[in-house]
Design a protein around this nucleic acid. Structure first.
Length: 581
RNA sequence: GCGCCCGUAGCUCAGCCCGGAUAGAGCAACGGACUUCUAAUCCGUAGGCCACAGGUUCGAAUCCUGUCGGGCGCACCA
């Protein structure tokens, strides 16, 4: 915005605009350099000074950390530096703390105290909180962005289910985790591409072909006993019905292999279409849909040759093996079977080579817990191609148990009685579904109670967060017309609940960074919840629209800032921000 | 047998990476707050050998070792 103004009126007012831009930039920069960092610097300077004065003897300034204490009474920030360094210096921690405090000069610190075994607690002046509100208003949608990722290219591959049936709840969690993680990483400054690997080659595809053909014959009056190892779900019947509508009984006359092929391709197209539709309706879109079939016309071969040249391929018992034990795997793995067909791993080798060659700095794969045993061999593949094994990062998402009123819902793949992603989303709504799938750490097993997720009540965290947004809308609707437009005096915001809300707003960028670093979306649902809590607390304690116009204006400014951050975080989660509930 | 994840309040879970002050939420229980910008909210009370046993440390829910319990894997399947 500022750039455009600068160019369009360059001659006339370039200096003014420069000044404006410059001030804005300093504000952003200062706040991004963050109070914490400045505080850390002040502490370091204090220690340096004490060393110079000869009050303490120290070779090197140790790493200083500040944290937000659990207890509010302990101030805004605290450091344990005196405790950490006391041993090395050979001094009692409290005494050392005192020296540090005496040498400290930090304008933004309002009060400092020594507590407990030697903690130094800081109470900060509120000015930075007011500045931060202005920053939120200025940055709008961009508030929360950090440059932690430094523009590095990350590819995140997730879902990647066989197109042999509809997506079920087992896929849902990975889908939302992947989608939200991608958003988090983007916000944290990475360049992110989302990719779906379509396993459209190999055995499973033939099986869906066979299954469809059997159901097709059944429709045409044959008595069919469904064998083991066949897709038995109802959806196969539906596909067969449509197949019949299109082909009549003409497939019966065909050679069986030819018929299976037709069935397979028919089912494939239909299932892939369904998967894409279901994901889209769930708010999940991919940048790339990568077909496994594209690997089978040469890429597998050349990838295997490349490994052979590097000496990681050998032949045994009529099969071709990849020497994954050279990179820490338990055993070597077959990649070309004795019948000359490639294994799943062979395709994955070619696929990951392709990814690596596309120039990503980081490949993130999101897998279900049942695939964790596959990690060592894939890491081995990455290393065999000469890349750092950490280029590939696999995030294992633990299993989901669907419950209804606390009772486990039966799910059997064999009987085809799984609950589809679509059904669940339809029942509880996509907002609640998305929230529930990411509200727990990916490392933890997830209990998903349908009745709870559906409940429009205090039990339901999704509505709790959304309600905060609706309340803000309601307040802003009621602003009296006669309120003047001039600037609000933010220093009127002094109530504890106002301070708490402003602090929560200020911590958003840091939350993004931590969440991106840990690759854990649940930190963000937690933050959204905390933000709503801070807002509700403020709402119950402070009336926004009052007789006091000045105070009202300051609170309106705060409320608008809260709305902005709520919107940013909800949009990040892919959850709507309703004006009314 | 080996590997990965989990074990924290009655229930569902944060906190663990990077050790610090009295271990936090929500639900359930109990008691309060609507003539007000939405009570789908807020405030309070109660509830814990952080699975167990050792070790490291001035200090352990957090790090190390072992044990027990639960889940998931250990294919020339994908």
């Amino acid at each position: 915005m500022f750039n455009i103004i600068k160019i369009s009126c360059w001659k006339r007012c370039s200096i003014n605009i420069y000044k404006l831009w410059g001030r804005f930039f300093v504000l952003v920069k200062n706040l991004q350099a963050k109070v914490e960092d400045r505080l850390i610097n002040h502490i370091k300077e204090s220690i340096e000074k004490a060393v110079k004065n000869g009050e303490i003897e120290l070779e090197e300034i140790p790493e200083v950390n500040v944290e937000v204490p659990r207890e509010k009474e302990h101030g805004d920030y605290a450091t344990n530096i005196a405790l950490a360094a006391a041993g090395e210096i050979g001094m009692n921690p409290r005494q050392l703390a005192e020296i540090i405090v005496n040498n400290l000069s930090a304008p933004e610190v309002e009060d400092v105290s020594i507590a407990g075994p030697g903690f130094i607690n800081f109470k900060m002046s509120s000015r930075w909180l007011y500045d931060n509100l202005e920053l939120i208003q200025k940055l709008g949608k961009d508030y929360g962005k950090v440059d932690y990722g430094k523009g590095k290219k990350v590819q995140i591959e997730f879902v990647s289910a066989n197109p042999t049936g509809p997506l079920h709840v087992g896929h849902s969690r990975g889908a939302v985790v992947g989608d939200v993680l991608a958003s988090i990483l983007k916000t944290a400054g990475f360049k992110v591409e989302k990719e779906y690997y379509i396993n459209d080659a190999g055995n499973q595809m033939d099986i869906i072909g066979k299954s469809t053909l059997l159901r097709y014959r059944e429709i045409l009056g044959e008595e069919i006993e469904m064998p083991e190892n066949v897709y038995a779900g109802e959806y196969v019947k539906e596909i067969a019905e449509e197949l019949y509508e299109e082909y009549g009984d003409s497939l019966l006359a065909k050679d069986e292999n030819k018929a299976i092929e037709i069935c397979r391709e028919f089912a494939y197209k239909k299932m892939l279409k369904n998967i894409k539709r279901d994901l889209k309706e769930f708010g999940i879109e991919f940048d790339t849909w990568f077909s496994e079939r594209d690997l089978h016309d040469g890429k597998i071969k050349s990838a295997v040759e490349m490994l052979r040249d590097k000496g990681f391929i050998y032949e045994k018992e009529g099969a071709l093996w990849f020497k994954s034990t050279a990179f820490g795997d338990d055993k070597d793995r077959v990649i070309i079977k004795s019948d000359n067909s490639p294994t799943y791993l062979a395709a994955d080798i070619a696929y990951h080579l392709d990814k690596l060659e596309r120039g990503f700095d980081k490949l993130i794969n999101i897998w279900g817990a049942d695939h964790h045993g596959y990690i060592p061999r894939m890491k081995a593949v990455i290393e065999a191609f000469g890349y750092d094994r950490d280029t590939l990062e696999v995030i294992i998402v633990q299993m989901v148990t669907l419950l209804r009123r606390g009772k486990k819902m039966p799910m059997s793949k064999r009987a085809g009685s799984f609950v589809t992603m679509r059904e669940v989303n339809k029942e509880v709504g996509t907002d609640a579904a998305r929230y529930y799938y990411i509200m727990r750490s990916t490392d933890s097993h997830l209990d998903f109670d349908l009745e709870l997720a559906k409940e429009e009540s205090t039990n339901n965290p999704v509505y709790y967060v959304q309600y905060a947004h609706a309340r803000i809308h309601s307040i802003l609707e009621n602003i009296p017309a006669e309120f003047s437009e001039d600037k609000a005096d933010l220093s009127l915001l002094t109530d504890q609940t106002e301070i708490d809300l402003m602090k929560t707003l200020a911590s958003y960028p840091e939350e993004i960074k931590l969440s991106a670093e840990a690759r854990q979306p649940h930190h963000i649902t937690g933050y959204a919840y905390d933000l709503a809590t801070a807002f509700h607390g403020f709402y119950n304690n402070c009336r926004v629209l009052t007789e006091d116009e000045e105070l009202s204006k300051a609170r309106i400014y705060l409320v608008k800032s809260a709305r902005q951050v709520l919107r940013n975080v909800l949009s990040l989660l892919g959850i709507t921000a309703p004006d009314q509930m």
